[in-house]
Amino acid sequence: MDERFDGYTIIASEKYKRYKDILAVLLDDNMTYTHEEIDEILQNEFNRPIVEFKN
Rank of each mutant, 00 (worst) to 15 (best):
G7S: 15
F5S: 00
I22Q: 05
I50F: 00
Y19N: 13
V25N: 00
I41M: 04
E45Q: 11
V51C: 01
F53Y: 07
Q43R: 14
I50Q: 02
E45H: 14
D28P: 01
D39T: 06
F53D: 03
M31F: 03
E37L: 00
I38F: 12
I22P: 08
M1W: 05
I11C: 15
M31E: 12
L23G: 08
L42K: 03
T9F: 04
A24T: 11
E52Y: 08
L42P: 06
L42G: 01
I11L: 10
T34P: 02
Y33K: 10
Y16A: 00
D2Y: 04
D39A: 10
D29G: 06
T32W: 02
T34D: 09
D6E: 15
F5V: 09
L23E: 06
H35M: 08
K15I: 13
P49L: 05
E40P: 11
D21W: 08
K15L: 02
Q43N: 10
N55L: 15
E40Q: 13
D39V: 08
Y8W: 02
Y16P: 07
A12S: 12
P49M: 00
F46L: 09
L26F: 03
G7E: 09
R4K: 14
P49E: 05
N30P: 03
Y16F: 15
M31P: 00
E52Q: 12
I10D: 01
L42A: 12
Y16G: 10
A24M: 11
E52H: 09
I38K: 05
Q43L: 10
M31S: 10
I11T: 14
E14M: 06
P49R: 07
L23Y: 02
K15E: 13
S13G: 05
L42R: 10
D39K: 14
T9K: 06
N30R: 09
N30K: 10
E52V: 07
D29A: 09
Y33M: 13
K15Q: 14
T9R: 09
I38G: 08
D28G: 02
R48A: 11
D28K: 06
R4W: 02
I50A: 04
E40S: 15
K17A: 15
R4H: 04
Y8E: 13
K20D: 13
I50M: 08
F5Y: 14
L26P: 01
F53Q: 04
K54S: 15
E45M: 09
I50V: 07
E40N: 15
T34E: 10
I10V: 13
A24I: 12
E14G: 01
T9P: 01
E3K: 12
A12L: 09
T32Q: 14
R48H: 01
E37K: 13
I50N: 01
D2R: 12
E3Y: 03
K17E: 11
N44W: 00
I22A: 07
I38A: 03
E36I: 10
F46S: 02
Y33P: 14
L42H: 11
R18I: 06
F5L: 13
D2W: 05
N30E: 15
N55S: 07
I50H: 04
D21E: 14
E36S: 13
D6C: 15
L23H: 03
I10G: 00
H35Y: 00
E40V: 05
E40H: 10
Y33L: 00
T32F: 03
I22H: 03
Y8P: 08
